[in-house]
Design a protein around this nucleic acid. Structure first.
Lengths: 344, 344
DNA sequence: CTGTTAGCGCTTTCAG
DNA sequence: CTGAAAGCGCTAACAG
């Protein structure tokens, strides 16, 4: 069970290696390798004989050995916690795209600080990945250094505004999205707009959303008292708490713009508990357009960011780089959309 | 960029191998290997010298080569789609536990049919994992055969009632959970109890939940007209649709037991849209106790299944097997709990 | 405590 | 079209 590769295993037949398959097919191991990697280079008869043996005996190629000598087949990825953040969809997009192209996804997730992040990147690199897709990226200089020194293929799923990607980046401008939503709310007649964020420290994307919010207010001649901004954990409870804090600070608040649907949904529930009509007494806007947003009562006005698509595109971009495609854009902007529904 | 291991890379310094580190530290490669794997077997001075070089030059060990010759360090896992199902928490539990023990998680996710599932298992096995954790398991005989023949360490996260695990299993009895919730609802005085499930075909866990629901009704002398059971996709919209279908079939319906919180949340929204008081006009119960359940309005009565814990325990169980621990239980039941809140 | 040798399972390279 | 030899980067096993 714990025994290293090869050799007999417990009850069943021995796990066969390529050498053994070759022996049984009456060819050299190299021919088996070729039959698998490049069937055209082997005569139909030989190939058929090999395949027949493989079929019968159940050979599974050792990817470790294979990747060591030839093409790398792992895509390493580092993501924030999957819970409550829409990251799950991105991961789904990545795995789908990876498997379609014959790659495997090595996943590290967590709440990274600078040091843990560097450590995580090092462990990924140890597996000799064909490339890296980084999302939970706090951008320690050491990590950047590590990656650019090594000259790795890297796609960051990140803020794309005013950032110089290590290699390539896929994403939206969080500034633009938040700006657009804030402007949208102002255009709909809301005046006192609260802003709820999850802790933005060291997180470029969240910072950009806040700046976008502020800039939109400024551009339309509104003030942005910082008392109308709060930070809470990314849970529905956080959203409810934020609402409580904000209305305490400003009882005339019109609308709350939550930088995540999870928060917005929590805030909506809190309104229900208080018996406040949405959007009449207080309006709520979210960010992300998760599945529930369109089914919530009232349906949630939010920013749609196509997460699955982002994951898919990130892999696609990586594969193009690996294929040596020329003139690859360093930054791939993903479209977004203000989804105007009933909650605001 | 696409170049295989070793050798010079684009702009930066060459990526160093162990041999090169050894040379610079004035020792044999083996000594470097030992300094890393088992520091006590190297004299403090030598170790210090080696570490100093590694620190300075930035060595990252090639895990491919390392795993080939010695301990395997990959845990392969196959899971259902991460979206909307609480699986994300399980994956979080798995990654946390894996990384704490120095393993990496190789992830395959998807909507598997029998054939795709076998294929997925084969790809995981190709990486010579120390063990497998399987969750999206439709249990094709071929897949079972493959795994038991190979004598792999396997933990299934699955139904644990009346099932003979390939190797080990961690989970709850879905029968018991659904039975308990149904009995709870009957005890609270509900009489006409609808049941909403996601498509149960080929899914043991969902089938067991349905059987548990039926058995509880039977045991308490209720009938279970199959017209009170519906299957819908696992989305909030599915929950809303299910509600519409059920109340159409039986306008006197008391309560709907949804076999997933995602469905229950959708059903709750549909009640709000219709202006129906919960639980007065119609009660709703869920399954899973996801984050939002406790924050929903009204707070959701549901079955708490500790998903994160399940993921963590699955890895723990695997590690024990790998450590050669004797008398390991084949089945690890995870506790569950009926969480009684306001929605039912 | 340290080094040497051999080889994990596959594929590159070069020769038939 | 097929095969033999060599070696990817590391570590088990065995010296010293």
């Amino acid at each position: 069970m714990t025994k290293p590769p090869g050799g007999k295993t417990g009850n069943g037949r021995p796990r066969l290696g390529m050498k053994e398959i070759a022996r049984r097919a009456g060819v050299a191991p190299m021919t088996v390798s070729r039959a698998l990697a490049d069937p055209d280079k082997v005569s139909p008869q030989t190939r058929a004989r090999i395949m027949e043996v493989i079929e019968r005996e159940g050979f599974i190629r050792n990817q470790l050995a294979s990747s060591m000598r030839s093409r790398r087949r792992i895509v390493g990825t580092m993501v924030p916690p999957l819970i409550n953040s829409g990251i799950a969809e991105q991961v789904q997009g990545m795995t789908d795209a990876c498997h379609a192209a014959g790659y495997q996804l090595l996943l590290i997730q967590g709440n990274f600080d600078t040091e843990a992040e560097e450590q995580a990147i090092r462990s990924l690199l140890g597996w000799q990945p064909a490339g890296l897709i980084l999302q939970a990226f706090v951008q320690s200089p050491a990590a950047r250094q590590l990656l650019s020194d090594g000259d790795y293929a890297v796609v960051e799923i990140s803020e794309i505004r005013g950032r110089d990607p290590i290699d390539m980046a896929v994403g939206v401008s969080n500034f633009d999205t938040a700006y657009a939503m804030t402007a949208h709310l102002i255009d709909k007649g809301y005046r006192r707009i609260g802003f709820v964020s999850t802790p933005a420290h060291g997180n470029d994307r969240l910072q950009q959303r806040r700046i976008g919010y502020r800039q939109a207010l400024l551009d339309r001649g509104h003030a942005y008292p910082e008392s109308l901004e709060v930070e809470v954990p990314i849970t529905p409870l956080g959203g409810a708490d934020a609402l409580a804090m904000l209305v305490e600070r400003d009882s005339a608040l019109d609308v709350i713009f939550c930088s995540s649907d999870t928060l917005a949904i929590g805030a909506v529930q809190e309104c229900h508990r208080r018996g406040w009509a949405i959007p009449k007494r207080l309006a709520i806007a979210g960010y992300g357009d998760m599945d529930l947003a369109a089914q919530l009562f009232p349906r949630l006005t939010t920013v749609r960011v196509p997460r699955y698509e982002m994951g898919r595109r990130a892999v696609e971009q990586l594969l193009r780089r690996l294929a040596g495609e020329a003139d690859l854009p360093a930054v791939v902007p993903i479209g977004f959309e203000i989804v105007d529904r009933e909650s605001a």
